[in-house]
Nucleic acid binder design. Sequence first.
DNA 1: CGCATATTTGAATTCTTTCAATCAACGTGG
DNA 2: CCACGTTGATTGAAAGAATTCAAATATGCG
Lengths: 244, 244
Amino acid sequence: MDHPLIAKLEQFSRLSGEDRRALEALTDGPVQSFAPRADIVREGESPRVVRLILSGWACRYKQLPSGRRQTLALFLSGDLCDHNVFVLSKMDHSIGALSSVTLVEIAPPAFEGMMAARPRVTRALWWESLVNAATQREWILNLGGRDAVERLAHFFCELAYRLRGIGQMRDGGCDLPLTQTDLAEVVGLTSVHVNRTLQTMRRQGLLEIRGRRLTIPDLPALERVASFNPNYLHLDRVGARFED
Amino acid sequence: MDHPLIAKLEQFSRLSGEDRRALEALTDGPVQSFAPRADIVREGESPRVVRLILSGWACRYKQLPSGRRQTLALFLSGDLCDHNVFVLSKMDHSIGALSSVTLVEIAPPAFEGMMAARPRVTRALWWESLVNAATQREWILNLGGRDAVERLAHFFCELAYRLRGIGQMRDGGCDLPLTQTDLAEVVGLTSVHVNRTLQTMRRQGLLEIRGRRLTIPDLPALERVASFNPNYLHLDRVGARFED
DNA sequence: CGCATATTTGAATTCTTTCAATCAACGTGG
DNA sequence: CCACGTTGATTGAAAGAATTCAAATATGCG
């Protein structure tokens, strides 16, 4: 199996053998494991390292005094948790495991050293961080401008594209380690309403959820429901892996 | 009057005379003007330059097929519109003027040259971009986790802190060139509901809007209503301007 | 003064939440 | 292998929040 970070970055840029070795060396530290629901970093802590998700699903989240929790971003295998927050003195949000998670920590100096030495990797990392920013914007649009069905549809579309990018979509479906409560925190609704909305969507044949598996029988249909436009994922240079 | 970008960056880091001259040189291009409601950059265009807002209010926004428009970020004097989007080939959102706006364009090579030459400025620009990212996250929380009163309260709190940082709060108030429709697009509500919500808030003495002026008689009270925590603005190093 | 833009209002509808209870699935220990 | 406890999914009824549509007022500007 491919190295998750390499797999991710190759979506944008073709990497040389040297580039790959540099990335592998960067991430050969000890692997850490987290149980589902465990916090990986908590708001208020001082970030010291960059974290690379190797397997499992994690999220960035914030909690309101009311107890309501909002997911701000989803981290999948190959995702970096903030490759630059260590510029700031304190975390303004938390990072938590949604499923079982394994990750490696990368020391900032090693990270910066590699950026200096490997321009193509650096370019790919820039792309990564700009796509993250674009994804955050799209989430704002999703919460501010769409109703329950559209929000969930959009989230699942984004998920499908992201998972496909890292080779984790199979037979029009994927693992879905999220409970309905987790989904509710992603889309800013209550779990009860997510439940009813999912039923509606199932009835319309937009998706199927059984066990921990999500199936999307007709992704284009789901995209239409969500007014999904994948432009913000900036995958238009995927071909770059074949040129250069 | 201070140079807007210098004023902004000095919130975080003390700049030397050299630093300031470099920033001034960077932004001495021709000044462009935009009328209220005019688009500055449109979705789909290829970004070629970095833009610095000199005066007026602008915003990043996206539009849904339904016609509904969502504001993704607010740009005030001293703000840079994406000092790095030119890495991506096409804009995935638009930038529009909310009031009359003046700005200067900065060519990417000049920008990068200055980053290479002036580490302290670079550090400040990093801070700027991380605070932008944090602000985006907070907007997600605002839309996903708060009701109408709280959302508006939170927005006005953020506004007060940002305007104070650039010296545009006077007598507990500020100019507010936004219509209720503009506000609705910021907080993801209809203008009708914004109208009713503002009336409630006025009745509770949380704010006052007359003409184009916003007054906040008791900011701490408004912060309590919004559960506002300014930590995400990362102003904790403001003192840095006096040390170093 | 008069048009154009912005704010305000009311009533009806739709969407979402709340609360409380039930049902289903799953893993553990006996 | 089954009872039991825990967690997640589902349901119903009622309340609450936000939207829609249409019309009426205000406000500002030329």
